[in-house]
Amino acid sequence: MPNDVSSVAVGKPKVGGAVFIAPLGSTLPTDATTVLDAAFKCLGYISEDGVVVTEERDSETIPAWGGDTVATVQTSYTETFAFTPIEVNPVVAAAEYGDDNVEVTSGKMTVKHNSKELPEKILVIETVPNSKTVDRFMVPRAKLTEKGDLTMADSEPMGRECTFTALPDDSGNTAYEYMTITGLAPSE
């Protein structure tokens, strides 16, 4: 396949929102373009750092008598999705503190901070990497496992980096990446 400048990709967010969250049991998307189930709520603007996807594989070597490495075995695999929501809204608050800890009334929101374990959610991240591609990551079992510090300063947006760990689904997959690429044809 020859070089193709139109295939170069950047992590541009989808216009209108790029990071969505829904409760477990919601209808999962199975492609890059079908409209998301109404249960998915947009987290709003994400910081300019975008979304960082990290896959980590740890392995161990097996030496033979004499010192030669004769095999390696994978000892763990972890995939995480990290981003910083920068809007103050009920969707972000519920993602960070749990639905039961957020109360919204007319013009008011109360967020309870406590040690209650957060429930798993479904996470969807949508990007438009170039003019011919739509890319959708779907994490069927995402758990918020880390929150960054909240800095309140007039020089930066109020937001905490949220790291979601992708847990394996019934098929053993931690995430699905669906792409629609104009002009893509199967290899012969």
Rank of each mutant, 00 (worst) to 15 (best):
G67H: 01
I181C: 02
M109R: 09
V102M: 01
L24Y: 12
V10K: 05
T105Q: 06
P186H: 08
S7Y: 06
V92M: 05
T105M: 07
V102L: 00
G148S: 00
M158V: 13
N173Y: 12
S59Q: 10
V111Q: 01
T105A: 07
M158R: 14
T69K: 04
P2F: 07
M152A: 11
G183R: 10
G25D: 12
G17A: 00
Y45M: 08
D100T: 10
A18N: 15
G11T: 13
E48P: 03
T182I: 14
V35S: 15
S76N: 14
S47I: 06
E79N: 09
P13L: 01
D31I: 09
A93Q: 00
A142K: 02
I46H: 07
D170L: 12
P140Q: 03
S131K: 15
I46W: 05
D68C: 01
A93H: 04
P85L: 01
T180Y: 14
T180M: 11
V91P: 05
S26M: 01
T34E: 10
G50I: 07
M152T: 10
I21D: 06
E96N: 09
E120F: 08
G16T: 07
V8K: 01
T127E: 07
E117N: 12
L167I: 03
Q74P: 05
A82V: 03
G16E: 06
G159T: 02
G183S: 07
D99H: 15
C42M: 07
M158S: 12
S7C: 11
A38G: 01
V124Y: 01
G172P: 01
E60I: 12
N101E: 06
I122A: 10
T80Y: 07
G50Q: 00
V51M: 09
H113L: 13
V73N: 03
P29L: 04
E79W: 05
E87F: 08
G66D: 03
C162Q: 06
T80L: 03
L167R: 09
E55C: 06
V52D: 09
N114P: 00
V5Y: 09
E48G: 10
T145C: 01
